[in-house]
Simulated assay, not measured.
Amino acid sequence: MSLFNFTLTLSGVTSDTTGLEDALFSAGCDDALICFYGTAVYLEFDRYEENLTQAVISAISDIESSGIGARVESVDSTLLGLSDIAELTGLTRQAIALLKDGARGSRQFPGPVQRVKGNSPLWRWRTVVDWLASEGRIPADSPLISNARVLDNLNLALQLRASPEQSNVMHYLHQMEGKAVPRLHS
């Protein structure tokens, strides 16, 4: 078994939820630190499991079976800023900034996907880590690559699960792929 560190963001509970800590502990989250951002709740896990997928899914199951109405909304570390990218890769922030600006490397650093016009744009971790491996900046067999893919896929599944518009989402996906789909009546 290996130790996996990850953060899960919750909905359905707040810092004011009665019995929050006890319920999560009793449900099997004794390996998590309960944290708050304002009244929002997130859990930082250090979980031993066979692989990252099993670690995250077992944590989701534990949280959602706690009986307090908690629901996992996301797994952290799929959208990151430059400092986060530097920290996860062990490169300096300056080295990452030089790659982003095209002063080093192939000048093909992936573009940000959120807050593009803001002071703190965000990059999709999976895309960045794949690019860093293709550039030889991290080893091609680095667990960062497979873990980024797992986190990305788990977040997509959590987003789809939370959407009341699942059929519309699938309809749009089929349209984007050029597949014939029946018209929706919205």
Rank of each mutant, 00 (worst) to 15 (best):
S2Q: 15
S2G: 14
L3M: 12
F4W: 01
T7C: 07
L10N: 15
D16Q: 10
T17E: 01
L20E: 05
S26Q: 05
A32W: 05
A32M: 12
Y37V: 05
Y37M: 05
F45V: 00
Y48E: 08
Y48N: 05
E50K: 14
T53K: 12
T53P: 01
T53D: 08
A55D: 04
I57E: 01
S58D: 12
I60G: 02
E64D: 08
I68R: 11
I68W: 09
V72H: 03
V75W: 02
L80P: 06
S83R: 13
A86Q: 00
A86M: 03
A86E: 00
Q94W: 06
A95C: 03
L99C: 11
G105C: 01
Q114N: 15
G118R: 02
G118K: 03
R124V: 12
L132W: 13
A133I: 11
I138S: 09
P143D: 15
R149S: 05
R149G: 04
D152R: 07
D152F: 10
N153V: 12
L156V: 06
L158K: 11
L160W: 00
R161W: 07
E165Q: 14
V169M: 12
V169C: 11
M170S: 03
Y172Q: 15
H174Y: 10
E177C: 09
E177Y: 09
K179S: 10
R183I: 02
L184A: 00
H185A: 07
